[in-house]
Computed example of a mutant assay.
Amino acid sequence: MKQIEVQILQQSYLLSCPEGHESRLLEAVERVDTAMTRIRDAGKVRSRERIAVLAALNLAFDIADREAADLAAERAQPAGHAHTIGSTSQPSDASTDDQQLQALVRRLDDALGEDGRLL
């Protein structure tokens, strides 16, 4: 495991990351930082913890919307294009995003410790 220091909402966090996945972690950090910055800059919420929870919820809703759109697109496919059992297709981007989001929240919880648990 490699450790990477990142900044989210101008606060440093030391996060563990599997070798070779650094760019994916940095992309996730950028998404979270952007989401939290938008909420903070809107001026209605000041607590870092509340900003983090709202950002996580917004990201989760985005993922749920993508999953719903993917499911609708799959259902709209003609019967001849349906996936077969044993198909080697890759998992949807939405489920990968959901897994990444959950892993990031766990990492942030670990970094914040017991007193700053996000969820």
Score class of each variant (00 low, 15 high):
Leu9Gly: 03
Asp70Met: 05
Glu22Gly: 12
Ser16Ile: 06
Leu71Tyr: 14
Thr34Gln: 05
Gly113Met: 05
Met1Arg: 13
Leu9Ala: 07
Ala73Thr: 08
Ala55Cys: 09
Met36Arg: 00
Asp65Val: 04
Ala79Asn: 05
Asp33Thr: 05
Gln7Tyr: 11
Gly116Val: 07
Leu57Arg: 07
Ala68Arg: 07
Ala35Tyr: 00
Val32Cys: 04
Val53Asn: 02
Asp97Trp: 04
Thr34Ile: 05
Arg50Pro: 04
Leu15Gln: 00
Glu114Pro: 13
Ser92His: 04
Arg117Cys: 13
Ser87Pro: 02
Glu22Tyr: 12
Ala35Leu: 01
Ser47Leu: 12
His81Ser: 14
Leu54Ala: 01
Ile4Cys: 13
Ile51His: 03
Gln7Asp: 15
Gln90Val: 07
Gln3Glu: 11
Asp98Gly: 13
Gln102Tyr: 12
Leu71Lys: 07
Leu104Met: 11
Asp70Cys: 03
Ala73Gly: 01
Ser92Gly: 09
Ala94Ser: 06
Ile8Ser: 00
Leu104Pro: 00
Ser89Thr: 13
Gln102Lys: 11
Gln100Val: 06
His81Asp: 13
Val32Ser: 01
Ile39Ala: 04
Lys2Asp: 15
Gly80Pro: 00
Arg38Leu: 03
Leu57Met: 14
Val45Ala: 02
Gly20Phe: 10
Lys2Arg: 15
Ala64Gln: 07
Ile63Lys: 00
Gln10Gly: 10
Ala73Tyr: 07
Asp98Pro: 00
Leu101Lys: 01
Gln102Gly: 14
Ser92Cys: 02
Glu67Pro: 05
Leu25Phe: 07
Gln99His: 15
Ala64Asp: 13
Val105Trp: 06
Val45Asn: 02
Ala56Asp: 02
His21Thr: 14
Ala82Glu: 11
Arg38Tyr: 09
Cys17Pro: 06
Gln90Ser: 06
Lys2Val: 15
Arg50Lys: 14
Thr34Met: 01
Leu71Pro: 02
Ala103Asp: 12
Thr96Phe: 13
Ile63His: 03
Gly116Tyr: 11
Lys44Thr: 12
Glu67Lys: 13
Thr37His: 10
Lys44Met: 09
Ile63Thr: 02
Lys2Leu: 15
Arg66Thr: 00
Ala94Arg: 01
Pro91Trp: 06
Asp115Pro: 00
Ile39Asn: 00
Ser16Gly: 15
Asp98Tyr: 09
Asp109Ala: 03
Ala103Cys: 13
Leu119Val: 14
Gly113Ser: 02
Gly113Lys: 03
Leu25Cys: 10
Glu27Pro: 03
Arg38Ser: 01
Ala82Asn: 11
Ala68Thr: 03
Leu112Phe: 09
Ala111Gly: 09
Asp70Leu: 05
Thr34Asn: 06
Gly43Ile: 02
Gln100Ser: 14
Leu25Val: 08
Gln90Lys: 04
Pro91Arg: 08
Val6Asp: 04
Leu112Tyr: 09
Asp41Ile: 04
Ala79Ser: 09
Val53Leu: 09
Thr84Gln: 08
Leu25Lys: 03
Gln100Tyr: 10
Thr37Glu: 11
Gln10His: 13
His83Thr: 08
Gly86Glu: 02
Gln7Leu: 12
Asp97Ser: 06
Glu27Ala: 12
Leu108Ile: 10
Tyr13Arg: 01
Ala35Cys: 05
Arg117Lys: 10
Val6Met: 10
Gly80Asp: 10
Arg50Cys: 09
Gln3Val: 15
Ser47Asn: 12
Arg117Thr: 14
Leu15Met: 14
Ser87Lys: 02
